[in-house]
Design a protein around this nucleic acid. Structure first.
Lengths: 112, 112
DNA sequence: GCCATAGGCAACCTCCTGGTTGCTGATACC
DNA sequence: GGTATCAGCAACCAGGAGGTTGCCTATGGC
């Protein structure tokens, strides 16, 4: 296409982390990470908060790409999407790597 | 022994993700992950925002354990702390793992 | 056709967040 | 000792996040 970059290789990871930065959303993700798609009602069943609040959290997760939704009959089925998790992981790897390299250089400098 | 924390080794990862969920904080971390401790003034030098704003972000990072600060003379030197990164990574691994297991089970079920 | 259930929409509320400005105290420098 | 630099503190502000309630639409089951 006419898109300038050969590939949008590293989309800003901050929104993914932000989406993960809430306990309620983490537990929603934990439920969904078993591969089973679930309706909003099902996901709200054993929580303290209202269905509306759960819906909002699901929208946040969806905006971050962590879940996808599909309407099935009168239900909205949400399912887990692993890609952003991998992306977040690879960002953390990047940081750790930079840190490890810095340590190695420091050690090399001190020890020689 | 009968202490409720038979495994205190998994403190809620949400605050860590929350701290990572901001572009400004990510770039502060990126700078610090080279192992060099830096003063607030140094870290504010090439940003758009004020020193005060940077200070607030640093406090957030510190609360999440991602950086530590030490007063040296009139400076507050901040340095990177890798532990929470590892923690966040291991949480992501947990989720991915659960997902992979679910996929395997599904595949086994379909293919037999 | 009726009723129960699933869910979307909108308004509203409270508290937190990210940011600013202004001021003050402490340390370094010459 | 005077001045410039580093940083902490407090007040303030706008907007967003998380949550609620009320109401309305659509679908499914009988």
């Amino acid at each position: 296409m006419s898109s300038p970059s050969a590939q949008a290789h590293r989309p800003d990871p901050a929104p993914i982390f932000a989406a993960l930065g809430d306990g309620t959303r983490l537990s929603l993700l934990a439920k969904l990470s078993d591969g089973q798609a679930r309706s909003i009602a099902a996901l709200s069943a054993d929580t303290e908060i209202t269905r509306q609040a759960v819906t909002k959290h699901l929208r946040v997760l969806e905006d971050a790409g962590l879940v996808s939704s599909a309407r099935v009959g009168r239900e909205s089925r949400f399912s887990f999407r692993p890609e952003p998790i991998a992306e977040a992981r690879s960002y953390l790897d990047l940081v750790s790597e930079q840190w490890d390299d810095a340590l190695s250089r420091l050690r090399a400098f001190v020890e020689r």
